Amino acid sequence: MMARLSAPWSRDTMLRVLRRGDPAAVPPPPARVIGIDDFAWRRGHSYGSIVVDLERREVIDLLPDRQRDTVIAWLRQNPQVEIICRDRGPGYGAAASEAAPQAQQVADRWHLFENASAAFLAAVRSEMPCLRRALAPTGPVDPATLTRAERIQWDGAQLREALNLQVIYLAGQGVPIKAVARTTGVSRNTIRKILRGQRHDTFRTRQSSLDAWSLPLEAEWSAGCRVGAELWRRLKACGFGGSLRVVSEWATRRRRDEKLGHTGGAGLSARTIARSMTTERDTGSAQTALINAVIEKAVPALISAREALDRFHAMMRSKDKTRLDPWIAMAAKTNETCARVRVDRRVNC
């Protein structure tokens, strides 16, 4: 059992802890204020539920799964519960409403902050085509200045652009989308993206192992460390698990961008851009400030979304519930998830 819980206790240690308890001690009173959340028995396969007495700050039960019926059965066995702190998912909320209608449901702060950050990241991802165009070099790209990885993307972009021109030409001649798909061998959804101008990215990005290490990487670069191998060794000493190639490619691109005077933002991921606009806005490098300036001019909708995020954080930290209605009215113009907040108004945020 201890191995399954990932607890580094031997059988002897477990027995000593159990024997150390005082059998004559008065058992604690039943929990009135509980927190419930899921945890992984095996990530991606099976999950359980953990129940915590928030007044005593002790785990009081582990449920074998996170199914609604399991939670309902536990709550019915504990009718004294008055407050339930949970995430904003529908599972635990529905179970609490059915089995403990007398209990007040509270959305915990961590999940609220996480939901807000996820909503802002989704807004950034929806604007990535515009962001890549805005952050791309203003002049023509010189293939000789590209790294090996960028050269592969560049060659693929030239092939995509030739196909895009063919699709646009056929559509301009009045050829139906279905016929264009048969002629070019491209799916109809891709053809619609081409005609909407959503498939002209030269450099496409994916989540990188360096995303979580941008702050120490920028700090080392600003301190004068400009060699990829040395940067990799310093990051590895701090726990970085990525390869030398990833860091060397980053250093090569950074040197190239500084030499040519580029912002260096065309190859950034959505998560990196979101972080540069929020947590790194006041503490980032000069390059971060330059990227933010380009974003503010090119995509003002993201500035409105960031303002909504900042006001939400301020509201949560102030614990002033009178600021909730004005925030919903303001954020409804920029944030699609505000409808979920309205539905969940019964939850005490």
Rank of each mutant, 00 (worst) to 15 (best):
V141K: 10
R204I: 04
R188I: 05
M128K: 06
L231T: 05
G239Y: 01
C130H: 15
V124K: 03
L163H: 08
D155M: 12
W232R: 02
R125S: 14
L231N: 03
L210P: 06
D155E: 14
W154C: 03
R196I: 01
V124E: 01
R188Y: 01
L235R: 05
D155I: 13
L146G: 06
P176L: 11
P143K: 11
A212K: 14
V186M: 12
C238V: 02
G239A: 02
G224S: 09
A162N: 07
Y169R: 15
R234K: 14
L210S: 09
L210W: 02
R133I: 01
A116S: 13
E249N: 14
T205Y: 00
E127H: 13
L135I: 02
S243K: 14
A251D: 02
Q207I: 00
Q173R: 14
G174F: 08
G228W: 09
A171N: 02
G172Y: 06
I152P: 00
L131W: 01
V175K: 06
L195P: 02
K178H: 10
Q173C: 13
W250P: 12
A157Y: 07
L210I: 08
K236A: 12
G224L: 08
G242N: 08
K236V: 07
A162I: 12
C238A: 12
T145H: 13
L163R: 14
G224D: 05
D201N: 11
R125H: 10
P176G: 03
P143A: 07
V167P: 10
A219N: 08
R133E: 12
P176K: 09
V167H: 03
G156K: 13
S208C: 04
E161P: 00
L215S: 11
G224V: 11
A122W: 14
R182M: 08
A181I: 01
L210R: 06
A212W: 06
A223D: 09
R245I: 05
I168R: 15
T205K: 04
R233V: 04
R132I: 00
K193T: 09
E249Y: 07
D155C: 10
